[in-house]
């Protein structure tokens, strides 16, 4: 029985259904990552502003997002916020909002780190040459900061992809839910279905995340030596 168990993956449209389920989480991850990159860069630049009030607010936002587990944030938005504000938000919308808020905070911190880690003489030299603020950013800060932040940003993207697996817990029908449905249907025919289905989902996540982490590691090594 056991060696035949793997067939459950290839029966009917099961594999296709799993892949469609996976696409649901990927879609959430991709949208959230896109939003995080755009607004995260802006947030990171804001964090470098030398204004105590701005820095305190930014710090509070970052620490609040960091210290509470993402699953709790999902619950807060899905069950809490909707009840308090008397609005209805779909689980997918809530997921995108929560993951974007998280991504913006983390991306902002990466950008801030990349900018402030540049030696102060870089900025001063630019100033001495008579460059304007905009030119200093365009020709000195950004080209150097980008190299420092891209590996970390890619890492953040894999973390976000992995963490989107949590959305099943607020009721998004994604790969894990589809997996459970397949297991329930085939439980009598193939008792070992759950092993193979979960192994398959495990492998799917690995196939997506592993190349991305390899890529980030490669970039990191390449830019470290320059």
């Amino acid at each position: 029985m056991q060696d035949l168990g793997i067939n459950v993956i290839f029966e009917g449209s099961n594999l296709l259904r799993l892949l469609i389920g996976l696409w649901v989480t990927m879609r959430i991850a991709i949208v959230a990552i896109a939003i995080s990159v755009v607004f995260g860069i802006a947030f990171g630049i804001v964090m470098t502003v030398k204004n105590t009030f701005v820095q305190i607010v930014a710090r509070l936002y970052l620490e609040a997002v960091r210290i509470i587990p993402i699953l709790v944030w999902l619950f807060l938005f899905y069950f809490g916020l909707t009840k308090v504000l008397h609005i209805h938000l779909g689980a997918e919308v809530v997921s995108v909002i929560v993951f974007s808020l998280w991504g913006i905070a983390e991306m902002g911190d990466i950008v801030r780190g990349a900018i402030t880690s540049l030696p102060a003489h870089q900025r001063a030299s630019g100033r001495a040459l008579g460059l304007t603020d905009l030119q200093i950013y365009r020709y000195i800060i950004i080209p150097q900061a980008v190299r420092r932040l891209i590996p970390a940003a890619i890492n953040l993207a894999t973390r976000m992809i992995k963490t989107t697996s949590l959305v099943v817990l607020i009721g998004v029908v994604e790969v894990l839910k589809v997996g459970q449905q397949i297991i329930e249907v085939s439980i009598l025919k193939t008792p070992s279905a759950s092993f193979w289905v979960y192994a398959c989902i495990f492998a799917l996540y690995f196939i997506i995340c592993y190349p991305i982490s390899l890529w980030s590691k490669k970039l990191e090594l390449k830019w470290q030596n320059q």
Partner: peptide
């Protein structure tokens, strides 16, 4: 290390808890 870092905890737990039980 690669297997563990590139998969979510939720999936690892489901695999361990529900998957391994069946074999």
């Amino acid at each position: 290390i690669e297997l563990s870092r590139n998969t979510p905890l939720l999936i690892q737990l489901f695999f361990l808890y529900y998957g391994f039980a069946k074999i």
